[in-house]
Simulated assay, not measured.
Amino acid sequence: MSELKFKRVLLKLSGEALAPQEGSGIDPHAANEIALHVKSVVEMGADLAIVIGGGNLWRGKIGIEVGMDQATADYMGMLATVMNSLVLMDALEHIGVTTRVQTAIQMQSVAEPYIRRRALRHIEKGRVVIFAGGTGNPYFTTDTAAALRAVEMHADILIKATKVDGIYDSDPRKNPAAKKFDTIRYIDALSMQLEVMDSTAISLCMDNKMPVLVLNLWENESLKKALSGEKVGTLVIP
């Protein structure tokens, strides 16, 4: 078992991580691939909790643009995160990783309600916990939910998994000369409007000194390398 620099980790995934190559929806093969990445770090001895978005199924801003009430649109997004969480739980259980889904919106037929102390006990027993339903409140993103759960679970780090290998001063897909940061301060990420996470999430991490690592989950076992202390992605620090 490798020595871990970060023992307890909150992994933030976008809903798009579960989407097919083309279009929206859920691709079970994508869920299986993510599950294998998760299993690899669980086998290293990491305590892992996950927050996943719902953008592959529903984006609240689409409803808002056509006149939908924002709270209603946001609640629909929360329900989408529950569907994604169940898919990922099933993929993890199929490869032998004991997993629990807790949701901030009570639906006892499909998932446990979010209870902080129960979630901590699950993690201490080596189970992966997936937090669904965002914060349970409209007007907050799943980035903010991830920051909140990371603080509540006493995580050593919040890892935001993307399909880009870190934070750049501009979009590297549009600007070949974009500069990548190895480290950046919270306040600089906010002032430069780098869209690492929304401002509420970054502020919550900053207030609680929660480091944030942005990396490409699908690149060269980056998650395992990050937990072992190798330089991967971009670290957001005080």
Rank of each mutant, 00 (worst) to 15 (best):
I64K: 07
A119D: 11
A104F: 02
L148C: 15
E93H: 04
W58T: 12
I130H: 00
V101P: 01
M68H: 02
V97C: 02
R116C: 10
I64C: 03
M192S: 02
T81K: 07
I167N: 04
Y75F: 15
A178E: 06
D156Y: 12
Y139G: 00
L57W: 08
A73F: 08
G96Y: 02
R127G: 00
D182P: 01
S109V: 13
A132M: 00
R127L: 10
H154G: 05
F181I: 05
G55A: 13
A104W: 01
L148R: 10
F181S: 13
K160Q: 12
E195N: 09
Y75E: 08
V66M: 01
T72L: 06
N175E: 01
V110E: 05
V101K: 00
L148D: 15
D165P: 06
P113M: 11
F140V: 05
G60M: 03
A71W: 11
A161E: 13
G133A: 07
P176I: 07
L194D: 06
K179C: 11
D74M: 05
G53I: 02
Y186M: 05
G67V: 03
G136S: 08
T142H: 07
L57P: 07
S170N: 10
S170V: 09
E124F: 07
K125W: 06
G54K: 01
A119V: 08
T98D: 11
M197W: 09
T103K: 04
R116G: 14
A145E: 15
M107I: 15
M83H: 13
T142V: 10
A161L: 06
I187G: 02
V196I: 12
F131Q: 09
A161D: 14
D171M: 05
D74C: 03
D69F: 00
T103F: 07
Y186G: 01
I115H: 06
A155L: 09
P172C: 11
H154P: 06
K160P: 07
G133L: 10
T72H: 05
M107H: 10
A155N: 04
Y186T: 00
G133N: 07
L57N: 12
E93R: 14
T141F: 01
T142C: 13
R100E: 08
M68A: 11
P176Y: 09
R59P: 13
K179M: 04
R185P: 03
V151R: 12
E195P: 03
A73Q: 09
G67R: 03
L88E: 08
V164F: 00
S191P: 00
E112D: 11
Y168H: 06
E93D: 10
K180Q: 07
D165S: 05
G54T: 14
A132W: 00
P172S: 11
S85E: 02
M89Y: 02
I62F: 01
I123L: 15
